[in-house]
Design a protein around this nucleic acid. Structure first.
Lengths: 159, 159
DNA sequence: AAAGATTGAGCCATCAATCTTG
DNA sequence: CAAGATTGATGGCTCAATCTTT
C-alpha cells in the first residue's frame, strides 16, 4: 500500500496522486455502495440509471443511457428489465424513430428517486462535500475535466 | 448548507467535484483497461494482483490479498486459479500456519510483471502524470487521503 | 468455535448473433 | 448496409455452505 517500490526512483507527486486517486476512489465507492444498500435499499446502479433518466422529461434512448451508465447495450437491456419489473421504469416507443425505445420513470420511480436522492445527498455530504474546501473542489473539477477530454480525444484519435 | 444554492439546478462546487471525480475516474479506468488489454495482453486485475504479490517476498496470504484487491475470498480463489493456470503465480503452504496459503510470483510471473509495469507506467504517464501539475497533484493526494481516513473511521465506528 | 480457504449455486455483465427499422 | 435494441451463450463475482486447522 505504502512504501511500495513501483520503480527504483522515488515516486513523483503526480505518481502518488495517481495511486491516491485509485485507492481513495475505491474506498469511497465501496463505502457509498454499502451505505446505499443499507440505507436506501437500492443498488447504486439503480440510482445511476434513475438519475440519468430523470434529467430528461421525454425519456432516454437505450443506447444513450447505456453510454451514460457505462454498460453495454445488452447489459442495459437486462438492467432495465429488472427495473421495469420493479415498477420503477417504463419503456415507451420513440415517436420519431421506431427503432428506438425511450425510458421514463414511472410515478413510483419518481417518488423512489426523490427519496433515494435525499439519502444519497446526505451520504455524499457526510463523506465528501463537507470535507472538501471550495478551493480544492475547483482543482478537482479542473483536473478531472481536463483528463476526461484528453481520454476522449485519445479514444477517438485511435491508438 | 450555506449562502449558495443547494437546489437541483445549481450544485455547489463540491457537488460538481463529486460528479467530476466519479465520471472522470470511470473514464480513466475504462481507458486504462482498454490500453492495458491491448498493449500488455493482461487484464488490469492481473496487474493489481501481481503488484500486491510482488511487494512481499514471502508471499501474500489469500485473505489479505483479497482485501488488497477488493474481492471476496472466493472471488480471489478463482482469480488465483486462472493466474496459476497461466503460470504467473504459485500457491505455497504457509510454514507457520497450515490453514493458510501463500501466493508468490513464478519466474515467468516476475518477468511478466516487470514488462507490464513498464507499459503501465507509460500509459499512466500519458493519460495522467504528464497532465497534472505538482500543485494539483498535492491537492489530490491531500484530499484523497483525508477522505480515505474519514471513510475508514466511519466503517469502524459507524454501525 | 473461529479463521483460512475452497466449492457450488445464482446473478449480472460482456460478446456475438439476430431482428427490425432507417 | 447502418443503427437501435434484444437474445442466448459464456465468464467472473458474490453468497452460503463446507472442510481443515488453530
Amino acid at each position: 500500500m505504502q512504501g511500495s517500490r513501483m520503480s527504483r526512483d522515488e515516486p513523483t507527486v503526480q505518481g502518488r496522486a495517481w495511486r491516491a486517486l485509485l485507492e481513495g476512489h475505491r474506498d469511497l465507492i465501496r463505502f457509498l455502495e454499502e451505505e446505499f444498500v443499507r440505507g436506501a435499499g437500492v443498488e447504486l446502479q439503480y440510482y445511476d440509471v434513475m438519475f440519468h433518466v430523470s434529467e430528461v422529461v421525454e425519456g432516454r434512448r437505450m443506447t444513450d443511457l447505456a453510454e451514460a451508465v457505462v454498460l453495454t447495450k445488452s447489459g442495459l437491456t437486462s438492467l432495465v428489465d429488472r427495473m421495469e419489473r420493479d415498477g420503477l421504469l417504463e419503456r415507451r416507443p420513440d415517436p420519431t424513430d421506431r427503432r428506438a425505445t425511450r425510458i421514463v420513470l414511472t410515478q413510483a420511480g419518481k417518488e423512489r428517486f426523490e427519496a433515494v436522492s435525499r439519502h444519497h445527498r446526505g451520504v455524499v455530504r457526510r463523506i465528501f462535500t463537507s470535507r472538501v474546501t471550495e478551493e480544492e473542489a475547483r482543482v478537482i473539477v479542473d483536473v478531472m475535466e481536463r483528463l476526461q477530454s484528453a481520454v476522449q480525444e485519445r479514444e477517438l484519435g485511435g491508438a
